[in-house]
Amino acid sequence: MRLLSIELYKIFKRPRTYISFGIVTATALIFQLAMMSGGREFFKFGMQNITEQFDVQGSIINGYLVAYLILQSLLIQIPLLVALVAGDALAGEANMGTLRLVLTKPITRVQLVMIKFIASSVYTVALIVWLAVVALFLSLLIFGAGDMINLKSETFVMLLKDDVMWRYICAFGFACLAMTTIASLSLFLSAFADNSIGPIISTMGIVVVLTILSNLELPLFDAINPYLFTKHMIGWKGFFDNPVPYAAIGKSALVLVVYTVGFLGGTTFYFNKKDINS
């Protein structure tokens, strides 16, 4: 517990940790400003197919919708922000030459990896909670609550105002799980490196490439697509469908847990054998 609090102290003492919180805040504010000024026009474009045949009346641009759009746009950025800290966990120590010193303490290498992972996960959860504050609660404060429209590629979903908040709570919970997988991937890559740039960039590279593969949906990638963790990372969106596809979300959560355990296992296995010179 003491080691964990030291790790957390190290993470939250660094000014660069707060860059992530700043980026999330700035992105949310920019989105909210954009939605205030031109949200209707933006949404009219997406609703063209619907408004040709139907009159949609009422306040479509509300806090719930704006929060959803912010979450969707942050899909790519949040893994980078998680990697900034998790990718630095082992490699940063190696780079500063403190890793050997840390390992002279009476803790096993497995314990050290686990503590680094838990500390990175705490940071990840804090980031998601902050995202919830600025994306959801601030949007609700600015735009108010209302029925939420979710435009999917082949479906138009409308959720009643009183039926949305629990979905956000579940979605943020799922996002924590997905981002913990990213943290474990970064930590895994961090074990191989002696400076943190490599693991951070590699994490982003992997996420970007796999996200593109997940979205391409070409027959060529059909066999591997269901196993890509990036495909399952967007499982939070399932909570905004009607009915909620619990089985699919459960399967996605399981895949993410398997990946997380796999990356952690790989990290401990490699780190246990690693010859630490710095």
């Binding site: 040709e52 590629s153 082949e154 495909k231 967007i234 939070w236 969106k237 469908d241 399967k251 996605s252």
Partner: peptide, 27 residues
């Protein structure tokens, strides 16, 4: 009569585990 509704998947980034292909055909 209702017209077809479709948006590019690149924009909506659907969670595609949801819709089985048989349901899509029916739609």
């Amino acid at each position: 009569d209702v017209k077809e509704y479709k948006l590019p998947k690149g924009i909506t980034m659907d969670y595609s585990e949801v819709t089985p292909s048989a349901a899509k055909d029916e739609k």
